[in-house]
Simulated scan of single mutants.
Amino acid sequence: MSDFDALQAAIRRHADERQAEQRACEAFLNALYHALRTSSGPGLPLNNVTLDPTPDPDSRLRPPPPGGWHAAWLRLGLCEVLVRVRREGGAFVGEYGQSGTFHLPHVSEDDLIALARRLLRDVAATYAGEDRAARPEVPLN
Score class of each variant (00 low, 15 high):
Pro42Ala: 13
Ala35Asn: 05
Asp52Tyr: 04
Val49Gly: 10
Pro139Ala: 11
Leu119Tyr: 02
Ser59Tyr: 00
Asn30Leu: 11
Leu78Glu: 13
Glu130Leu: 12
Arg135Tyr: 02
Arg135Met: 15
Arg135Cys: 12
Val123Ala: 10
Ser39Gln: 11
Pro136Leu: 07
Ile11Phe: 06
Gln19Ser: 09
Ile113Leu: 09
Leu74Asp: 03
Ala114Ser: 14
His14Tyr: 01
His70Glu: 00
Asn48Arg: 04
Thr126Phe: 13
Leu46Cys: 13
Gly77Asn: 07
His34Cys: 10
Asp111Tyr: 05
Arg23Cys: 09
Arg117Thr: 12
Leu29Tyr: 02
Val107Asn: 06
Trp73Thr: 14
Leu78Asp: 15
Leu115Ser: 09
His103Gln: 11
Leu78Cys: 08
Cys79Gln: 15
Gly43Lys: 05
Phe28Thr: 09
His103Leu: 13
Val138Arg: 11
His106Arg: 14
Gln98His: 14
Glu95Tyr: 05
Gly97Arg: 03
Val49Cys: 10
Thr50Ser: 12
Asp110Arg: 14
Ile113His: 05
Leu120Phe: 06
Glu17Cys: 09
Thr126Pro: 07
Glu26Asn: 08
Ser2Pro: 12
Asn30Glu: 13
Thr50Ile: 02
Arg23Ala: 15
Asp122Lys: 09
Pro63Tyr: 03
His103Ile: 08
His106Trp: 02
Thr50Cys: 00
Gln19Asn: 08
Arg121Phe: 03
Glu95Val: 09
Ile113Pro: 02
Leu46Asp: 14
Ala31Trp: 01
Gly94His: 00
Ser2Tyr: 01
Gly97Thr: 04
Ala128Gln: 15
Gly129Met: 09
Gly97Trp: 00
Asn47Tyr: 08
Asp52Trp: 01
Ala124Tyr: 01
Ala10Cys: 09
Cys25Lys: 06
Gly129Ser: 12
Pro64Thr: 10
Leu82Val: 14
